[in-house]
Design a protein around this nucleic acid. Structure first.
Length: 191
DNA sequence: TATGAGATCAACT
DNA sequence: GTTGATCTCATAC
C-alpha cells in the first residue's frame, strides 16, 4: 500500500492554539528526518498567566510574538530545550508545547542521543523530545514548513483526551493539555 | 513507591 | 535571591 506524505499547509498554524493543539495530535514531526507521531501537547495563550508571553515580550520569547508556523525553543530549568509551535496571526503570542511523541524514524540516533534503549522513555516529556530530536536554540525562530523541520498530516483523526497541564502553578486548572487516547508514550496518564 | 538534590539560566521580586 | 512549561539519579520508606 502506498501512503502519500502530505505536509501541513502554511495556514494550519494561523488559527487559535485551542484548535491547533488538538489537531496536532497524530501529526508526524521530523527534525532532520528523526522523530515520530505527536502524542501529547499543551496550549499556551498570551492571556494565560502560565504562558511565557503573558508578561510581554522579552529576548527569550520574542519568537512567540512573530508570525505563526515557526518554532519557539526555550531552555527549561537551565537544562532542557523545549520545542513549541507558534500559532495564530502575528502578534497574538501563543504557542503549543510539544510534550511527547511516539518514536518512529531515526530510532538509532534517538537512542544514542538519549543514552537509552527503552523506546517508551525516548520522547515522553518535553525535555526528552528536545534531546531525542536534537532541538536547540539554533532552531528558535525557524519556519516549520522548511528543513530541518517536516510535519506530515495524519491519515485519520485519533481519539483525543484533554486534561490539566503539567508542572505549572499558575492557571493550573485550565484543561489545555491534549493527548492521544490510550497511547503508552504519554508523559503522564490523563485522568 | 516516594521524596530530594543537582544541573544551570532567563525573568521576576 | 527565588522561581520555573524538566529530568535523572540517589537514597529512604
Amino acid at each position: 500500500m502506498i501512503i502519500s506524505a502530505v505536509s501541513l499547509s502554511r495556514s494550519f498554524f494561523a488559527r487559535s492554539v485551542h484548535k491547533v493543539a488538538p489537531d496536532l495530535i497524530g501529526v508526524t514531526l521530523l527534525v532532520n528526518g528523526v522523530g515520530g507521531r505527536i502524542i501529547e501537547v499543551e496550549a499556551y495563550h498570551h492571556t494565560d498567566p502560565a504562558a511565557h508571553s503573558f508578561r510581554g515580550q522579552t529576548p527569550r520569547n520574542a519568537v512567540m510574538f512573530g508570525p505563526p508556523g515557526h518554532a519557539y525553543v526555550y531552555r527549561s530549568y537551565g537544562v532542557h530545550w523545549c520545542l513549541n509551535f507558534v500559532c495564530e496571526p502575528e502578534g497574538s503570542a501563543s504557542a503549543v508545547l510539544i510534550r511527547a511523541i511516539e518514536p518512529l524514524e531515526g530510532l538509532v540516533k534517538m537512542r544514542r542521543r538519549r543514552g537509552l534503549s527503552d523506546e517508551r522513555l525516548l520522547c515522553s516529556g518535553p525535555g526528552r523530545v528536545g534531546e531525542a530530536l536534537k532541538v536547540t536554540d539554533a532552531h528558535n525562530g525557524l519556519a516549520l514548513d522548511r528543513p530541518p523541520f517536516e510535519l506530515i498530516a495524519r491519515q485519520t483523526k485519533p481519539e483525543i483526551v484533554t486534561g490539566v497541564r503539567i508542572g505549572i502553578t499558575k492557571a493550573a486548572e485550565l484543561p489545555w493539555r491534549y493527548g492521544f487516547k490510550g497511547s503508552r508514550f504519554l508523559s503522564k496518564p490523563f485522568r
